[in-house]
Write a protein that binds this DNA or RNA. Structure first.
Length: 315
DNA sequence: CCACGATCCTGCTAGC
DNA sequence: TGCTAGCAGGATCGTG
């Protein structure tokens, strides 16, 4: 599922390939619900003849700006991909929108699950209003320790759902939230206002780090994610906890656990992500009660150093 | 403010 | 073997 690193990767690969091109047609809409605030006809009359001026990203939204200050905002949700292909190339199944460009290429929105959405805005102000209504600070551009501390202050909510709340922090989704919490050694059920300043600092750094590494690896192709040229990312080879229930924590070897929080899977290491405050049911632990404390952080390999999972070791 | 459940979709898979 | 029921999952909305 595309999160910030996947959207950023797509924006970076798309930018040099479409900026300067002129829209010649908008065709192929077979699922009107993907256009919540416009129609294929309106898109056509708004965009035909317009030149692509910029490609941007805000949270998980990919933004395409035109020379007259109109904007498209694309949210890929679960399974959406934005592919730039030759107009003559065969259509992939689940292609729901095609924007034809004057060099013979087509920007195609392909989305199996049909959760993805494309919005049209008539000006940057209109776009900014839309984004401001639903997005907090961008977790790659705006996030730092001070901002995070201010946002966490007074919040009783658990960390995991907060990180997934785009109005709290924009760009982090389920996968990178779990990776960041593991990196910061924080339990997903910890209450937001229970964090020490050292923990807040760890979390801010961890979020930034997992996102930056995700971008460096051109995204996580966990299920269907692909770049605008159809290529897969490689970050899935480096995940420490996400989707790894039962497999050893790369830091301490304890089997990774999966729990459900807010109807969403959460993966974490039960040994070095403790729920510290009020730990109950200490007796149901199946481990040989030798509850030795987590090893000191200094000697631990960082997430970025985790060895590539051996091929075929999944499942 | 916070938690929880339903909703939207389809492909995959566990279970029979 | 073949069918089906259930699940995953981002954002939004309604309820408690």
């Amino acid at each position: 599922m595309p999160e910030l690193p996947e959207v950023e990767t797509t924006a970076r690969s798309l930018r040099p390939r479409v900026v300067g091109l002129v829209v010649t047609a908008v065709v192929g809409v077979d699922w009107p619900r993907m256009l919540p605030n416009t129609t294929e006809e309106e898109l056509g009359s708004a965009l035909v003849g317009r030149r692509v001026a910029e490609v941007d990203r805000r949270g998980k939204y990919l933004l395409i700006g035109f020379d007259d200050d109109q904007w498209l905002a694309v949210h890929r949700k679960m399974s959406g991909n934005l592919l730039l292909q030759d107009a003559a190339a065969p259509l992939e199944p689940h292609t729901h929108l095609r924007v034809e460009l004057d060099d013979g290429s087509q920007l195609r929105f392909v989305d199996t699950r049909k959760f993805g959405r494309v919005y049209l805005f008539r000006s940057r102000d209109q776009l900014d209003d839309f984004l401001a209504e639903r997005l907090g600070p961008d977790s790659l551009v705006d996030l730092d320790e001070g901002i995070l501390a201010a946002k966490l202050r007074g919040r009783k909510a658990r960390l995991k759902p907060l990180l997934l709340d785009q109005a709290f922090l924009a760009g982090v989704g389920n996968l990178y939230a779990d990776e960041a919490l593991w990196e910061a050694r924080l339990h997903p059920l910890r209450s937001a206002d229970s964090l020490s300043s050292a923990e807040v600092k760890r979390l801010a750094r961890a979020i930034k780090q997992v996102l930056v590494m995700g971008i460096e690896r051109r995204g996580t192709s966990f299920s269907t994610y692909r770049d605008s040229d159809g290529s897969a990312g490689e970050n899935q080879e480096f995940l420490n906890v996400y989707g790894r229930e039962g497999q050893p924590c790369p830091r301490c070897g304890t089997p990774i656990r999966r729990i459900v929080i807010g109807q969403r899977s959460s993966y974490f290491c039960p040994r070095d992500q403790r729920e510290t405050v009020r730990r109950r049911v200490a007796s149901e632990s199946a481990s040989p009660s030798g509850m030795d404390p987590p090893p000191p952080g200094g000697m631990l390999p960082s997430a970025t150093g985790r060895v590539r999972r051996a091929a075929g070791s999944r499942r």
